[in-house]
Simulated scan of single mutants.
Amino acid sequence: MSPLRTARRRPRRLLLLATALAASLLAGLFAPAAAHAEPSLAEIEAEIAKQWNQLEPVIEDYNKAHGDLLKSKKKAAAIDAKLQPLRLTVEVTRTRVGAIAAEYYKGGRNQEINSLLSSGSPKQFAEQLAILEYLAHSKQEQIAATTEAKALYDKQKSELDAIIADQVKKDAEVGAKKKAIEAEVDRLQALRVKAYGSGAPGGSYKIGSLCPATAIGGNGQKVAVAACKQISKSYVFGSPEELSKSPQPHYDCSGLTQWAWYQVGIRLSHYTKDQWTEGKRVSTPQTGDLVFFFPNDGLHHVGLYVGKVNGRGVMVHAPHTGDVVRMAYIDTMPIAGYIRPGG
């Protein structure tokens, strides 16, 4: 082919190539966008688990700060109750001493002369003065001892007031985080609604036909039975705020275990990390023991062991927002260990 003919065909080829490229670009611009695949139930559950693993430590910090504040306020009220009779004693004693002083010094030395003249004898007058001085001295000793005791309580109360002020500040700071937590909770709940259609958690509340799955008797059995009766109640973080023998309308993870053990008279803190130290460490759990999770992420979840089903350990726990108190296999999360309260 001659160079001239090749030169004539080149612009035509370039035109065809440019036209094809333009058509391709236009097709890409105006073609309908590929539909974004909706996440599967497994993906949603994985996302909820991931996000909750970050949220739960903050929630536990809130429980710790709020629980410490409530304890300090109760302690302050107890100290203030002790101060009230001390304050009254100090005031009464001061009034009596003041009355004695006023009676003695009223009229100056004229009173002494008049007393001497009316007493009948100098000896009787001297005895009267001695009694008066003794009474005054004893009252001064009494008021000094009372004032010293009051000063001690005042010091304790002042220190406690400072602690409470600091805890109020911390409570407010963690409480502010609560709003951010609630916003994230709403987002996770929206995922659940999308996944399950109604917002109800998936799966059965119980594993097997019995709860507790393994009966042992004693306090562990009583605690487990109490926890099992709370199955299907909703998760609400920060609850219950106060210990009660009465069943509560909702729980968070450490609130459920705290409430269950209180049914047999054993007080636990409303804080997972504190509960980790409030009993005997055991290697093999039995019904009623506490089971702790996430040893590498701050130890921020706890449940109540209730035996075995199909050879696997099961617990009753309050999982997370949007869910309810339910039974679950304990091997679905990394286990930190077991504690037996009162052991």
Rank of each mutant, 00 (worst) to 15 (best):
P3S: 04
L4Q: 09
R5T: 14
T6C: 04
R8C: 10
L15H: 08
L16H: 04
A18H: 02
A20P: 05
S24W: 14
L25Y: 04
L29A: 14
L29E: 00
A33I: 10
H36I: 15
E45V: 15
A46H: 12
E47K: 12
K50V: 02
P57S: 07
D61L: 10
A65E: 12
L69A: 06
L69N: 11
K73C: 01
L88V: 11
E91V: 11
R94W: 00
A99P: 00
I100D: 13
E103L: 14
E103P: 00
K106L: 09
G108Y: 07
Q111G: 02
L117E: 01
L117I: 15
S119P: 03
G120P: 03
P122I: 05
Q124V: 10
E127S: 09
I131F: 09
L132C: 00
Y134V: 02
L135S: 02
Q140E: 05
E148L: 10
A151R: 09
L152N: 03
D154C: 04
D161N: 12
V168L: 10
D171F: 01
K178M: 11
R187E: 11
R187I: 04
R187H: 13
Y196A: 07
G203Q: 07
G208N: 07
S209H: 07
P212K: 00
T214R: 03
G217Q: 05
Q221K: 01
K229P: 01
Q230F: 01
S232E: 10
S239D: 10
S244M: 04
S246I: 08
Q248P: 12
C253F: 07
Q258E: 15
V264P: 08
V264S: 12
S269K: 06
H270L: 12
T272F: 12
K273M: 12
T277K: 14
E278G: 01
P285H: 07
F293G: 03
V302R: 05
G303I: 03
V309I: 11
V309G: 04
G311T: 05
R312S: 09
H317E: 14
H317P: 03
P319W: 00
D323M: 03
R326S: 11
R326A: 12
M333Y: 02
G337M: 04
R340H: 14
P341M: 02
